[in-house]
Computed example of a mutant assay.
Amino acid sequence: MAAAPIEKKVTAAIAAAYVGSTGLLASLAAVQDDARLISSLPDGLTPFVLALIPAAITAIAGWKAKHTPRPPR
């Protein structure tokens, strides 16, 4: 039995997670170091709010990517 191809949605989500966790997190760390940009957030909530940004990028990439067509059975 041949292995099924990896869905394009999964590939897009993986790529977005990688990009979001590398370059974007470095940018978010810089934002976190600049207290003026996030001063309105409670200190305990800040890491969770900043972590939502890469998660949102991953979710949107997976949602926007098209499904991989499957051959009829």
Rank of each mutant, 00 (worst) to 15 (best):
R36L: 12
I6R: 15
R36P: 01
I14F: 10
A65Y: 08
R73T: 13
L37K: 06
M1R: 13
H67S: 14
A61C: 06
P72H: 14
A55L: 02
S27M: 09
K9V: 10
S21V: 03
L37V: 07
A16C: 03
K9N: 07
I14Q: 13
G44V: 07
W63N: 07
G23D: 03
A3D: 08
P5I: 07
L50D: 00
K8Y: 14
M1E: 10
K64N: 04
G44W: 08
E7H: 14
A3F: 14
R70V: 10
P71Y: 15
E7M: 13
A13V: 06
T22P: 10
E7G: 15
A59P: 02
G62A: 05
A3P: 02
L25M: 13
A16N: 05
P72V: 12
A61P: 02
S39T: 09
L45R: 02
A26C: 06
A15E: 09
A55E: 00
L50P: 00
D33Y: 07
K66M: 09
A26V: 03
F48L: 04
P71R: 15
A61V: 01
S27Q: 12
H67A: 15
A30V: 03
L25S: 14
I57S: 11
K64T: 11
L52W: 05
S39D: 09
A3L: 11
A15P: 00
A16V: 01
F48G: 12
P71F: 12
R70P: 02
L52C: 08
G20Y: 07
A51T: 05
R73H: 13
V49Q: 09
Q32P: 00
P5T: 10
A51C: 00
T68V: 02
I60K: 06
V19D: 05
L25G: 12
A13E: 06
A29T: 11
V10N: 11
A56L: 04
L52P: 02
K64W: 11
I53D: 04
K66A: 15
H67N: 15
K8S: 14
D33P: 00
A30R: 01
A51W: 00
S21K: 07
I60D: 08
D43H: 08
P71N: 15
T58Y: 02
W63P: 00
Y18P: 02
A61G: 05
P47E: 07
P71Q: 15
P72D: 14
P72S: 13
A65F: 00
L28A: 06
A3M: 09
L45W: 01
F48H: 13
